[in-house]
Design a protein around this nucleic acid. Structure first.
Lengths: 221, 221, 221, 221
DNA sequence: CATGAATGAGATTTCATTCAT
DNA sequence: GATGAATGAAATCTCATTCAT
């Protein structure tokens, strides 16, 4: 990513992607680790394998992350951070509540599909009962932008009389998340049992439509 | 450890512990293994630990299940089998489609909450990309009773004109499952970020109600 | 030591000193470990080295002793146990107090000289601030036979009027130990600075004599 | 870490921290290293830990002391040097031999108690069989002031007829050292087994008295 | 002189599995 | 069927030391 390779440095020495490049090395490890942890889980991952796919050595992993668990924690925190950032980019001002809410649902559905590694990390972390989650302080849902966004939309809809009162943003977020998450997390077993149809483009379009429909009907009921 | 075998008691009588339980040892292993696999995953589980919590020794695990993976496969197949059996017990004949469909949703929501270990095994299996799933032949969704049940209800509703046509039972099942599953699978991370409110009795009642509502609105739209 | 090698077992298979001989293997490890720990200390010792000098593998060390520290603890406890046993063998009944007390001093002086590994383990353990000592319950000085022996001798001497009253057995033991211990523990540095004379046979005889003299004079003063 | 260097302050003036301390960095390292080596031994000590507690970096340790072993050697030599200096300060001229000798014993007993780190370094060095001791030339007991002091006292006592002839100063020093050293070196294990009484103020006073008594009786016998 | 980054070699420990009885 | 002992292969982690700037 932030590579600083010098083409002139063509000596016989073993090729190093970065000499003395702390962030380069650190990020390189982080990226590789994310992929492998997402694929194999914490206990299923070999530090060796991460090192092998890196431009550095196993030793550097311990240098920067103390131990395997430390690396896993960083990967997880990083993944959440990036997801937050993607959510922060959502721009919905000016839209009518119903339109905006569907946009949130669609965005979540699409974004989850795009972020398979993130979903897998969350699956894995749930198997661990959230033991390695970043400090609650950094994660608190209060200042989560999705929640704030949904809150605003919902409040506006209620004010306009188009949404029924009595619900919370977290509830709405929960429903949208559940449907969008399951679509990625359980694809393997679900398609094993019920076939792949729901996962081809047409099937996905139908599901996506349903998700938005259900959410809107829920608030408009 | 908790063994009750008496060296002098070398008669032909079956060992007391398993008197009414011919496959005693095997089932004992299976039960213990299910619990531990559900808690720690495949790679996170130690054969040692399973053996220790069993009334038998490690040797027997290999005797009955060949290897750790074999045991895991059996545990998984067993768990699915039991879930199927629970679903088969659903009796809805005679009810109007809308009532029946809500009952299916409620049942699924409740049943998932009760079957945490099963859900965890499914989570784990999805991390493994469904690599260890029982043969598709045994699992095929065609002969799944939930699907057949939903199919009947839906067909009836469409025939009566109360449900809109154009949907499939698998789609409906997908939505119900997603919402019911996420409620269990992601409780750890979700409550870490957004608090525990949705998981106390009141919160769960609300979510359960929403799930039924959304499904019904989806078919009645 | 407790070897059970069978000369008839001359197959092509790799030679094993003991197959399926738990105590053999365990004691073998313990003996080798004691020697090496005594020589190099806890952190200075390589598990590898212990294994290499054993008839088994590194793996067995972990099988029986959990980890390096566990092995060290056992070695230490074992060494203390053996020292106690040697002390228990002291037979002094019937001797006049002064003679008996000198015998205790002489025995301790000689026994320490013979038990270099034990002394070294105690040195090492003191460097660790006695962190790995066996449970105080097993070690309590109350039921230590040396203390009881000295107590009896001293009480008798006081009763007879040959020893002055007002001292404790632990104090006497302390002095005898200090002199006997230092003779072994500090030989290396002391002889480095002041030469080897005190450590040749003649020097040792003189020191030994002094130790007994001083103790007797102390109680007879 | 607690560095006070200012990048703009690139004058020729010596760094503030070491204004009156030309060998500042070196001595800083030495002091920290002494403490840690005394606590954990040679193999138990991490160069990393020394560096961390120093005002400099690891690099400087290697710059000044070549390697860990070199640093350890210097620490040890330094500790002996300081002990010698303390002994040199003893001023006993004019006192009657018996009084002077008890003063030497008392001084040694007290001085050892005060110099725990030194005693620990000696313990550690004895575990290493005195492999890292400073050159014998620097250390030779001949020019050791304690030995010379004791020699003088003893000679005077013999000349006066109050001390019996036939002993050497090294022997006397050996006894005093043994008792004073053990008091510090074996406190951990001894009190673990026999309790702490001998190590409280009263107990120590008794032991100290005994040590002087025994030495005096030994020469006066 | 000074520093943070980097590292090879090796140490400790783990784990599924098999063996001997 | 049953059991405790045994094990090879591999995984995690540590440490003194050197390098690049």
């Amino acid at each position: 990513m932030t590579q600083i390779t010098d083409p002139e440095d063509d000596t016989d020495l073993p090729r190093r992607k970065w000499k003395q490049n702390p962030n380069g090395v650190r990020n390189d490890i982080l990226e590789v680790a994310r992929e492998i942890f997402a694929k194999k889980g914490l206990s299923g991952t070999r530090v060796e394998e991460i090192a092998a796919r890196t431009s550095t050595s196993k030793r550097m992993i311990y240098y920067y992350f103390t131990d395997k668990e430390g690396l896993y924690r960083e990967v997880l925190a990083d993944a959440y951070r990036q997801t937050r950032e993607a959510e922060d980019a959502l721009e919905l001002s000016g839209l009518p509540p119903a339109v905006a809410l569907r946009k949130v649902a669609d965005f979540t559905f699409d974004n989850h599909r795009r972020s398979q590694d993130f979903i897998r990390l969350v699956m894995i972390e749930n198997v661990h009962n959230a033991r390695y989650m970043p400090d609650a302080s950094k994660m608190s849902g209060e200042n989560s932008s999705v929640i704030r966004i949904i809150e605003e939309i919902y409040a506006q809809g209620v004010a306009q009389g188009t949404f029924r009162p009595g619900m919370t943003a977290v509830e709405l977020h929960w429903h949208i998340s559940a449907l969008s998450y399951f679509n990625v997390s359980n694809r393997a077993t679900f398609s094993h049992i019920f076939g792949r149809q729901l996962f081809d483009e047409e099937g996905q379009a139908i599901l996506r439509q349903h998700v938005g429909d259900m959410i809107l009907m829920l608030v408009q009921a």
